[in-house]
């Protein structure tokens, strides 16, 4: 337990500067793009007069110089106040936390599925590297990795939703169905199959390759020969001894990919009409809704920091030598 506490302290100390850099960077980036939320409000209305625009800018504080806006924003962020979205006329915290759960479910399931399938395929491939099974798995992994997710998603929709009609085209639940409890859960699960598959396929390719490479390396080490000499079966050697070691780089990748998966959810959520933070982030960029975007960045950064902390804990569990001292 002591090791975990040390890790937590160290991670928290690193998190504060990370957050500051992320927030300031994003604030400046979106300031660099021409146009602000008042412009996009005018566009969404099909036009408007300049007096209204000026009044709105004054009301939203957009007429202040940017260092003042940035300082105000950082000060509010320190107190966990995410501010107000002028595009949605809603508190940013409400917007983001309404949508975060579905994105986390989508991301978590996709990563879990990718880890399970990718890890298993990688292990199977490594067992007889160079064999026919290995080649087949490698080819499959390459295809998963190379196909862009917007295309995969569309093809899955065409096949499973349009042609076979096994699964819904999009959304997270049947609208106005009034389902509750387990029936509602199953309905949501059915809706999430295609988006999860789309998001997971890319990572299956990655994890498969990482697992395979790591296992092949571990197979050459001395303790494996010892294990074989003890009379363990090849399966026991591969999954008990080799796979456990090979999982360390996999855990590293998982931590790195937490951010990538959040980014990937932008595409997947738009395609499958999933009301998550990815889509909210995309809309916020297009609408120059600075407050909403920075709120999402803030919360996403917290999520990524949390996932990486969990990965550290997992390291410590997989390899007892880590985190001592």
């Amino acid at each position: 337990m002591n090791r975990v506490a040390t890790l937590l302290r160290r991670r928290l100390a690193q998190a504060v500067p990370t957050l500051l850099i992320v927030l300031t960077g994003n604030f400046l980036l979106i300031r660099l793009a021409p146009g602000d939320v008042v412009d996009t409000l005018m566009i969404s209305q099909g036009g408007g007069d300049p007096a209204t625009a000026a009044a709105l800018r004054a009301e939203y504080g957009l007429d202040q110089p940017w260092p003042v806006q940035l300082a105000l924003f950082l000060w509010k962020s320190l107190r966990f106040d995410l501010g107000f979205s002028y595009f949605y006329s809603e508190r940013v915290a409400t917007l983001v936390f309404d949508r975060l759960p579905i994105t986390l479910v989508l991301m978590g399931t996709a990563m879990g599925v990718a880890l399970a399938i990718g890890g298993t395929l990688g292990a199977l491939a490594a067992q007889r590297a160079g064999g026919r099974r290995d080649v087949a798995i490698l080819a499959f992994g390459l295809v998963c990795y190379a196909l862009p997710s917007f295309w995969i998603g569309l093809m899955l929709i065409v096949l499973f939703a349009v042609k076979l009609q096994w699964l819904p085209v999009g959304g997270v639940a049947t609208m106005g169905s009034g389902l509750a409890g387990i029936a509602h859960g199953l309905d949501v699960a059915r809706h999430l199959v295609l988006p999860v598959a789309t998001l997971a396929l890319f990572f299956v390719g990655v994890y498969m390759r990482v697992m395979r490479a790591a296992m092949i390396e571990v197979f050459t080490q001395d303790f494996v020969r010892t294990a074989r000499a003890k009379g363990l079966s090849e399966r026991q050697v591969a999954f008990r001894h080799v796979a456990r070691h090979a999982m360390l780089p996999l855990a590293t990748m998982l931590g790195l990919h937490a951010a990538t998966a959040l980014g990937g959810s932008v595409v997947v959520e738009s395609m499958f009409s999933v009301p998550g933070v990815g889509r909210l982030a995309f809309d916020a960029v297009m609408q120059r809704d600075v407050n909403t975007l920075l709120g999402i960045v803030y919360v996403s950064a917290l999520v990524v920091i949390a996932v990486n902390f969990l990965v550290d804990v997992a390291y410590a569990w997989i390899d007892p030598r880590i985190g001592e001292g």
């Binding site: 569309l154 999009g170 809309d283």
Partner: peptide, 22 residues
């Protein structure tokens, strides 16, 4: 009795939903 406006930002998905009868 009821009208449901379903938020669908992706136009290709709207075409697919039409085809699927959704």
């Amino acid at each position: 009795d009821q009208i449901l406006f379903r938020a669908m930002p992706d136009k290709a998905a709207i075409a697919a939903a039409h085809e699927a009868g959704e």
